[in-house]
Computed example of a mutant assay.
Amino acid sequence: MKITRVETLSCDAGWRNYHFLKMETDEGLTGWSEYDEGFGSPGVTAVISQLSGLLVGQPVPGLEYFHAQAYSRTRPAAGGVVAEGMGALENALLDLHAKALNVPCHALLGGKVRDRLRVYWSHCPAWRINHPKYFGPAVTDLDGVRAMGAEARERGFTGLKTNTFIFDDGPAYAWRPGFAAPFYPELNVERGLVRNLQACIEALRDGAGPDMDILLDLNFNAKTEGYLKLLRAIADQDIFWVEIDSYSPDALAYIRNHSPHPISSCETLFGGREFLPYFQKNAVDVAIVDVVWNGAWQSRKIADLADIHEVNVAPHNFYGHLCTMMNAQFACTVPNFRIMETDVDRLAWDDELFTHVPEYQDGHLVVPDRPGWGTDPIEEAIRAHPPKAGGGLIKPRPRS
C-alpha cells in the first residue's frame, strides 16, 4: 500500500480555524488527523507540505521509521511548528494503519486500560466571556460565572476549569498578558488581578457546589513571583490543580515546592527530551501532553516516561471533535491517566463536520471502538465553511 496524496483542509471555527490532514493511498484507504495553527503556531501547514514529500509515492511507513527519518531531516530546528507538522503526519499514519487492520487506534497503542475517561469542562466560563458571538449565553459578570458553575453541575460534570478574568472594569474580559492580550510583557501580578481571581473562584464554587473539582489555568500570564502571589491568595480554596506554563523546570519546581495546590504543566512541550527535566526536577504533579502536537505514538512514550517518574498525565484538548477522539484513543491506553480536558461549549456547526461526535455520560467520555480514531471529517461540510484569513491568533487588547 502506497501513499498517493497528502492534502490539508481548513474551515471556519468561529474565532479560529480548524485544520485537517488527509492522507490517501492506492488501496482506497484514507488516514486523517486534526492539527492547529491558532495557538501561537502559524506555519504548521507549510511544514506538512514540506515533510509530506517524504511520504507521497512511498509505501506506508511505520510510525517509528517516519519519526526517525523526519526528525533526522529537521534536527537543527526540532520542536515548535516543525514538531507539530510531524505530529500531524504521524497521527494520520496511525489512523491509516489502524484502518488497514480494521481496529481502533488504541489497539496499536497498547490496548485499552479503561472504557471511559473522566473529563473536565474546560474554558468555563472563558468561551462565553471571550467569544459570546459563538458560545452563549454571554457571561459578562460574576453572576454569569456562578450560573455556569451551576450548569456544569446540572449537566453531570464533576470538574471544570477556569482562567483569569477582570470583572470590575465594565463587562468581563480575559486577562492574558502571556499572549499579549493585553500587551504587558513584564507579566506583573497586581492587586486587582488577585481580587478578581478570588471572586471568580468563589462564584464558581457558589454555583457548582462543594463536590465540583475546580481547576485553574494561569497559562504564561505571570512570572515566578506573580504565580506565588496568586497561589498564596487562593490558598484557602479547594483547587484540583493550578496549571502553569513555564519553560524553566527549575522555576516551576520552586513554585510547586511553595504551592498549597497541585501543579500541572508541560502542554507546550515537545518530545521526551523536553519533558524529562520537569520530571527530574519534580516540577509537576500532573504532566499535560498535547497529542495533537506530539503525535499519539510519541505521546505514548512521554506518558511512559512520566509513569517512571511517578507522574500522571492529562491530554491537552481544546480543538475540534477529531482531536477529542485522538486524545481519547491515547488516554484510554495510559495507565497513569489523570483526567481529560474537553470543551463542552461548541459551535453551532461542529457536529456536522464529522461522521461521529464524542459521547459523554455522567462526566465521562465513552471511548469508541470504531476503526481508526472513531470519526472522520466530512469534506463537504468542511468546504461549506470556508476558513477565515489568519483565524485563531489571539487578538491584542489595548492597554488602558
Rank of each mutant, 00 (worst) to 15 (best):
M325Y: 09
R146P: 05
V311I: 11
P396L: 00
V289P: 08
A98C: 10
L218T: 02
S72V: 06
K281H: 11
M340W: 00
N312I: 04
T30P: 06
Y360A: 11
F330D: 06
Y65V: 12
V311W: 01
V291P: 02
A150H: 01
V367T: 10
R155E: 09
Y247R: 13
N282D: 05
L347M: 10
G226F: 12
I244W: 07
V113A: 05
D250P: 11
G159N: 15
D211P: 04
R114G: 06
C266I: 13
L215T: 08
Q69K: 10
A147T: 12
F179A: 01
F275D: 07
V6N: 01
V47W: 10
G40D: 03
P171L: 02
E310L: 04
F337S: 08
R16G: 03
Q298S: 01
D217C: 07
A147M: 02
V194W: 11
D307Q: 15
L51K: 09
A314W: 01
N17C: 14
A172C: 01
M340T: 01
F20D: 02
F220T: 14
P260Y: 10
A83R: 02
E34N: 13
P104E: 09
I288C: 07
V289F: 08
A152K: 05
Y18H: 07
G207E: 02
F66V: 11
A100T: 06
W373L: 09
G149K: 01
H106T: 10
R176M: 10
V357Y: 00
E202V: 11
V81M: 03
T4M: 01
G28W: 11
I263C: 12
R5F: 03
D115A: 14
S264R: 10
T8S: 00
